[in-house]
Amino acid sequence: MKIEFQINGATRVIDSPPMRRLLDVLREDLRLTGTKEGCGEGECGACSVIINGEVINSCLVPVCQTTGAIITTVEGLAKDARLDPLQQAFLEAGGAQCGICTPGMLIAARALLDLTAQPTRDEIKEAIAGNLCRCTGYVKIIDAIERASLIRTR
């Protein structure tokens, strides 16, 4: 079936069996490989994308439900090859180690900051509770998001 949606600001039409996962459509059809598969069961959050302003696991979304959706993936964060403040904060604060959870974390963080400009550390923790990281202990991820929230409001 043909499905039209907006991805990172551009309108795309794809042709796919309806129950195919949005994750696979992004990675295989659109070659947007920034969004990752870590578990296929909605536990690790590595496949997180923003759909209509909400952070969602793309491994659990059948593409037939994305008609007319506005989707943002990690590739849509940076503007004109410049890192966005969230990405820059991660770089400076050591928020990424192996990097596999990072796209999902950035997406979850972006969704949070779009909703709550100056979250508390507890709010940040809760916002990324669906994004598993095995490398960092979460400390510097929370630091990075906090840092980014302060930059944005300056």
Binding site: G42, S48, V55, I56, L60, A129, G130
Partner: peptide
């Protein structure tokens, strides 16, 4: 329930 990603859907 789960985490924010699950709560949204």
């Amino acid at each position: 329930v789960g985490a924010i990603q699950i709560q949204n859907r």
